[in-house]
């Protein structure tokens, strides 16, 4: 027997959104072992990381589609449906950018000039840390729904987002240092190679940018 009273309660998008962010972070995290393998010139390991990134990214993609189709317009939620879909979109971009970076690294057989390897790895770690902080913040989403986006829990999430902002600006700083480091080496390197190095630095920076935008979306949810 079907019952209508139970039908009133739509399926909650919260747990799937949290899982999606988890996958996006695990995808971005693979950038660290990948660049370490690049430094060590271990191309088998690089390939392996790229595969993992590709699989995780497509897993995130499928999940994104599933969440979208489970959020019909007739759902009444404490926060606007559009804001949740926007959050989902920026979460997905984190995984997307990781995939773009890994694609360029493998496709162009990228080599890191010795003088910038250390700042480069540091920069990648910082970008990934931002993604991790984004995941930590999204993990509070269920408690935010529990508290109705108000009170002590909302303040806690605000402080997490502030930390996320800090990580993103740190990543920005490391990025500009890295760019000036690369600028000094430019004349000794093949121009096309330099061009793609800049491209990879930009894309890696975008991982942190999108992680920060995850925080922005969470803040918007709090503002309602």
């Amino acid at each position: 027997m079907a019952n209508y009273l139970s039908g009133i309660f739509g399926s909650s998008p919260v747990a799937p959104l949290q899982q999606h962010m988890d996958i996006a972070y695990r995808c971005a995290k693979q950038l660290i072992p990948m660049f370490e393998a690049v430094v060590e010139n271990d191309w088998a390991a690089v390939e392996e990381c790229r595969h993992r990134i590709r699989d995780l990214e497509s897993e995130a993609d499928e999940m994104k589609q599933a969440i979208r189709s489970s959020l019909p317009k007739s759902l009444f939620m404490p926060v606007p449906r559009e804001d949740l879909l926007e959050l989902l979109l920026v979460q997905d971009r984190v995984a997307n950018r990781a995939k773009d970076v890994s694609g360029l690294v493998v496709g162009r057989k990228m080599e890191l000039p010795e003088p910038i390897t250390e700042p480069f790895i540091k920069f990648v770690r910082c970008s990934v840390a931002a993604a991790k902080q984004a995941r930590k913040s999204v993990r509070e989403l269920d408690e935010l729904f529990e508290t109705g986006f108000r009170g002590a829990e909302a303040k806690l999430v605000e402080s997490m987002v502030a930390e996320l902002d800090r990580l993103e600006s740190e990543s920005d700083l490391l990025q500009s240092e890295l760019r000036s480091g690369l600028f000094k080496l430019e004349s000794d390197l093949p121009p096309v190679h330099v061009m793609f190095l800049y491209k990879i630095i930009d894309l890696t920076g975008e991982v942190a940018d999108y992680a920060e935008r995850v925080g922005r979306r969470l803040e918007l949810l709090l503002a309602h």
Binding site: I8, G10, S12, P13, V14, P72, F76, F145
Partner: peptide, 24 residues
């Protein structure tokens, strides 16, 4: 059902399916 919607208005319920409410 009216009471459940009231809790929902106070941001208490994660998702309410308004299509079902309409049907009721």
């Amino acid at each position: 059902v009216g009471a459940v919607l009231g809790v929902g208005m106070a941001r208490g319920i994660t998702a309410i399916n308004l299509a079902v409410v309409n049907r009721i």
